Simulated assay, not measured.
Amino acid sequence: MRGPDAPAKALDARALAALAANPGCRRRAILDGAGVDKTALADALGSPSAFGQSQFALTRGNAFEAKVKADGGAELLRLVRRHLDPGAEPADGATVPDLAAIGPEGRTARTALALREAAAGGAYGTGQGGAGGWVLLDHPMLALQVAGSPAFLEPDAVVVHPDGSWTVVEIKSFPMLDGSADPAKVGAAARQAAVYVLALEEVASRLDPAPRVRHDVLLVCPKDFSNLPTAAAVDVRKQRAVTARQLTRLTRIQDIADTLPEGTCFAPGLPAERLAAAVDAVPATYAPECLSACELAFHCRQRSRAADEVTTLGRAVRAELGALTTVEDVLSAARGDSGDPDDPAVAALRRAAALRAEALAAQGAVCP
């Protein structure tokens, strides 16, 4: 589907979090499942995306992460102990296993082995029955089944505590000012970390006894306007539950593919007309929130506006309007030209239209 010469684009935790936030969008599900580069696809469709990080932000983030993990992750482990496990032994001399392997499958297997040995207090621990020393897994690789296809995920770090429990660490380059950060950015980081927690629970479930995966993840950010790391514990239980439920609701990718015309292809090098027809053959569920989460948002918004869909006004408005799916349906119902008067949405629209007419009439009487 992505074309014979196009390499597959990996499905990361950020994309999974966005997909879980809009599980009804079959278009994103099939494109992500097929590994299509949606940025290149949007460019080919004539609706280039503004979504994503700048090169400057990526460079700054990589430099900050390297600083946090310097000296065998000493500062990172100090922050984990301070915010999540203050009663544990100091994290001096923690083990950092080598997770190098060939391909994502090999790295996933190597990560699972390192976690299993750490949980058992084997090569990486000093205690018995899962109680050992601190272990830091730098950029481990985890796998999660999504709509019948595997997704390989790479958290910034996973820490194994001396009691055998596991913690996900998210390192971000946005600052914490006076101990707090931008709520929108923290929320996005929490949703991303929740995906890692789900994948880590999959690994833990295969061990006996299963280690405890902590639902308090550690968010590490620059302190104020400096490059010094600070951290805060973020409870992702709510985000984890929502993400798990939404991922379960996703239609299997094969089921979506079976509904497409024979020979459907999303290769960016195809003629624009054929490419647009292929994309439009897959139903999309556009909402304004897609603008900050999907590379195809501008294309989908254009199509949604052309179809006069009320989803362009937001999910909350769409939910209130019930069976009224287009803006013309809404205006017609408000005017009294159509719609069931007993429908609560229609009754509310007509009441709003009457109040608006009264307000305009009163304004005209005061200001002729």
Rank of each mutant, 00 (worst) to 15 (best):
2 R>V: 11
3 G>W: 00
6 A>E: 06
9 K>N: 05
10 A>W: 02
21 A>C: 03
24 G>F: 00
30 I>Q: 03
31 L>M: 06
31 L>A: 07
42 A>D: 02
48 P>K: 00
50 A>D: 14
51 F>I: 12
52 G>Y: 07
52 G>L: 13
54 S>C: 10
57 A>W: 01
58 L>T: 13
59 T>A: 15
63 A>V: 09
66 A>H: 06
67 K>W: 02
69 K>S: 14
70 A>I: 08
72 G>P: 09
74 A>F: 02
74 A>K: 12
76 L>W: 00
76 L>M: 06
78 R>M: 03
80 V>A: 08
81 R>N: 11
83 H>F: 07
84 L>Y: 01
84 L>C: 15
86 P>E: 08
87 G>S: 12
94 A>W: 03
98 D>S: 09
99 L>H: 07
105 E>T: 14
105 E>L: 12
109 A>S: 11
110 R>C: 03
111 T>A: 11
111 T>E: 11
114 A>H: 04
114 A>L: 07
115 L>E: 01
116 R>K: 08
119 A>E: 02
125 G>I: 13
125 G>H: 04
126 T>H: 09
128 Q>K: 01
131 A>W: 02
132 G>K: 10
135 V>G: 13
137 L>W: 00
139 H>M: 05
144 L>S: 14
147 A>N: 06
153 L>Y: 12
156 D>F: 00
157 A>S: 11
160 V>Y: 03
160 V>N: 12
165 S>F: 01
165 S>P: 10
172 K>G: 12
174 F>R: 08
178 D>L: 12
186 V>G: 12
187 G>K: 06
188 A>Q: 11
191 R>G: 15
192 Q>T: 12
192 Q>C: 07
194 A>D: 11
194 A>V: 13
199 A>E: 09
200 L>D: 06
205 S>W: 01
210 A>K: 04
216 D>L: 06
217 V>A: 02
219 L>E: 10
221 C>T: 14
224 D>R: 00
225 F>S: 15
229 P>W: 04
231 A>G: 12
234 V>C: 02
236 V>K: 05
237 R>Y: 01
237 R>K: 02
237 R>C: 01
239 Q>T: 11
243 T>K: 03
244 A>T: 05
244 A>E: 08
246 Q>Y: 05
255 D>P: 08
255 D>H: 04
258 D>S: 15
258 D>A: 15
264 T>M: 07
273 E>M: 03
275 L>Q: 09
278 A>V: 08
278 A>M: 04
279 V>L: 03
279 V>H: 05
283 P>M: 05
283 P>Y: 01
284 A>I: 08
288 P>C: 11
291 L>E: 12
293 A>Y: 00
295 E>N: 13
298 F>Y: 01
298 F>M: 06
300 C>M: 05
300 C>Y: 00
301 R>Q: 09
303 R>K: 15
307 A>S: 05
318 R>D: 11
318 R>W: 00
318 R>L: 07
321 L>M: 07
325 T>M: 09
328 E>Q: 06
330 V>H: 05
341 P>M: 09
341 P>Y: 04
342 D>F: 04
344 P>G: 09
347 A>F: 02
348 A>T: 15
353 A>G: 09
354 A>H: 04
355 L>V: 13
359 A>K: 03
361 A>T: 05
